[in-house]
């Protein structure tokens, strides 16, 4: 049996010191991580590796003996992903352990080339596996991070704004898919109830394309709003989108569409019995006043 596990255990303090020295010249990113944190992470990981090696198992790292090492690598990857390290930088942190371990292996086998080669091969396999675990964990935490951002973005990207008394506007930016339409529809209808609005303007200036599915989603939203007693106006229909709608044979009969948000707003004011008029006066040329039509 190889002496490697025993050797790692016996010399893990020296290996770690060697490792830290390496990192200070090679892979450290002083802008992203402090000396203290690096110190404590390397200690944690080295302890975990030593405890894993104590089991004598160096090729299969899925067992309970290496659980601590896997957890430690997971935690390190997560914090590095947050700190803004790249995948290769994070993997290099683990891979840079190779040289210190090789150094220790060489010191341990001064006169036996066969044993030296054997131990170097084993330790290189071990470190590679640890690096792969790190890369996987890093990737997973990045994906989680992205998924959460997407969720937040989805909520952020559907703000319902109250334009005027009884008039709501919903500017949609980006592609409309089923999941997003659900969010859009719900927040719009909820806002209709809360603000007691009779007209909702859905502005699609920021929607890149309108296909049959998007149109269907829009129509559903409009129908649901009507069932509640609110009218919808679609604004921001760009010329290309008007062409696509006709080419696809999408039936928007019964839906009021306007080219510009301002046109839709004017219609909404009319629908709710309100007018905007200019105030005549010396300095009031640009001011407008709203009053309710009696």
């Amino acid at each position: 049996m190889s002496k490697l596990p025993e050797m790692i255990n016996k010399h893990h303090e020296e290996i770690r010191a060697d490792w830290l020295k390496q990192m200070s010249t090679a892979v450290r990113r002083a802008d992203l991580i402090s000396n203290e944190e690096l110190e404590s992470q390397s200690r944690e990981l080295m302890d975990a590796i030593a405890s894993g090696a104590r089991s004598g198992e160096l090729t299969n790292l899925d067992g309970p003996a290496w659980g601590q090492a896997r957890d430690t690598l997971g935690a390190i990857s997560t914090s590095r992903a947050k700190q803004g390290f790249s995948t290769s930088e994070t993997a290099t942190f683990v891979l840079s352990l190779k040289q210190p371990i090789f150094n220790a292996v060489r010191r341990e086998n001064p006169s036996d080339p066969a044993a030296l080669f054997d131990d170097i091969w084993k330790s290189t396999q071990l470190i590679d596996k640890l690096a792969l675990i790190t890369a996987d964990a890093f990737q997973a935490s990045r994906e989680k991070f992205i998924a959460r951002q997407q969720e937040e973005l989805m909520e952020l990207s559907t703000p319902v704004v109250k334009l005027w008394d009884g008039i709501l506007a919903l500017p949609i930016i980006g592609t409309l898919d089923s999941a997003r339409t659900q969010v859009v529809m719900e927040s719009l209808l909820q806002a209709v109830v809360q603000t007691n609005s009779r007209v909702a303007i859905i502005d699609i200036t920021g929607v890149p394309t309108v296909d049959t599915l998007v149109a269907q989603h829009l129509l559903k939203t409009i129908t649901a709003a009507r069932l509640m007693g609110a009218d919808c106006i679609i604004s921001g229909v760009r010329p290309q989108i008007a062409q696509t709608i006709v080419h696809l044979g999408i039936d928007l009969a019964g839906v009021i569409t306007k080219a510009k948000l301002s046109d839709a707003f004017a219609l909404a004011l009319q629908r709710t019995g309100q007018v905007v008029t200019k105030v005549n006066g010396d300095n009031a040329g640009k001011r407008t006043l709203l009053r309710r039509e009696e």
Binding site: M185, E186, L189, K220, A225, M228, G229
Partner: peptide, 13 residues
């Protein structure tokens, strides 16, 4: 009058 949003969404679906 007064149809709730969840009811309206369901009815359309």
């Amino acid at each position: 009058v007064g149809m709730q949003p969840a009811v309206a969404i369901t009815l359309v679906e």
